[in-house]
Nucleic acid binder design. Structure first.
Lengths: 202, 202
DNA sequence: CTCTAATTAGAGTGCAAGCTCTAATTGAGA
DNA sequence: TCTCAATTAGAGCTTGCACTCTAATTAGAG
């Protein structure tokens, strides 16, 4: 059951659990971290943890919701409408999004498995993703008609977005895997390499 | 302990375990699959499973070794030297490599987490990956001096390879996440979109 | 202060999973 | 056929984790 805190001091307990869980999940992975570990890290008792969360999975879902929310806010937030974004700005934001997933590193590593095992989470993910993809698609078509983008076919545009998306989502995790240090600038350069040839000068 | 089978009929037991494990891991993920499940699926007793494998992790490592071996063979195998491969051929092979990781789907979903939790596995992965990257890098430089590739900087070449690699490795898994069906042709088209602008005509 | 509900502690339960152990069975060579 | 090592079965042990339960404590309202 999702318990809603009544006092402000209690809210802190719930948040402390989430912070502790995030920290430990990022370090050791969800399956290696026990609820008792999380409770200890948060400085509370196991029973208290189960007062605020009915489930270990609920903690994971809540963390995912936090990530998705921050991600959504990053795009829809601010006054600037997405439709007026220039290519350079898009790349910067995509790379920034990757930085956000650095804070939720365990999701980058485990999201596929989590989605595979949790249909509810998978459905949520697909909704968010579909919305984002549609927005990008509209933006790219606008660029095309504005002469910013080379005259690609619809399929080509879809592919270009897909390629950019895949790189933005996974480059950080893949870099971590290979052991080389990764910086935001690297991601932006990678993305520019893919997009630039399809931009018209001017 | 890694037990080596003495008779040929016994080898089948070991392989049946691996096949059963692969099938179940792909379906439900490693953590949701117990050794007893694997034994049952393989049609043997739990004890027998532990006669051939000392550990559940050893099964995972063995499966990874099988994947890495097949991958390595795909590239180094055959008479054709990698250095003489044309761009179109490279894309086809990269996409084929993705198809191979379809057989080991659970790795695509869990590899990052597995590497994060198993330093030995991580070291192996990095060795294989470093060798592959170096080979691709040499190939791309050759293309550049042969006039197949546009005159990119060394950094540009490294980035191009990184981009292609990331897409080849993850596009399939990302596609699965989003729910859309994925085919080999899609991957090849995606890769071509990235590489093509950097190829010189002729 | 008193009463009540919210919050917390922490010992403890149930159970499932990884793994062990011993005895049975098989099969290849002498 | 006999022998002995390789292989297999399967009952069951151990551990450790998710989760529960009850009693204590705190904090806010009247």
């Amino acid at each position: 059951m999702l318990r809603t805190p009544t006092t402000t001091s209690a809210r802190r307990t719930r948040d402390r659990i989430l912070e502790a869980a995030l920290e430990l999940f990022n370090e050791r992975g969800t399956s290696a971290v026990t609820t008792n570990h999380v409770a200890a890290q948060a400085g509370i008792s196991p029973g208290n943890l189960y007062y605020w969360f009915s489930d270990k999975d609920e903690i994971v879902r809540e963390l995912y919701a936090g990530f998705a929310g921050a991600y959504e806010e990053m795009w829809s937030g601010s006054d600037a409408n997405l439709m007026d974004v220039a290519p350079a700005e898009l790349l910067k934001r995509l790379a920034a999004g990757a930085a956000l997933s650095h804070r939720y590193a365990f999701l980058g590593r485990e999201l596929l498995g989590l989605l595979h095992g949790d249909p509810i989470l998978a459905a949520e993910y697909r909704t968010v993703r579909a919305r984002r993809t549609a927005a990008f698609d509209a933006l790219a078509r606008r660029w095309r008609s504005d002469g910013v983008l080379r005259p690609l076919s619809d399929q080509g545009i879809a592919d270009l977005i897909q390629a950019l998306w895949v790189i933005a989502e996974t480059w950080l995790a893949v870099g971590e895997m290979s052991g080389t240090s990764v910086e935001t600038a690297d991601g932006e350069r990678l993305l520019r390499l893919v997009l630039e040839p399809y931009l018209l000068p001017g």
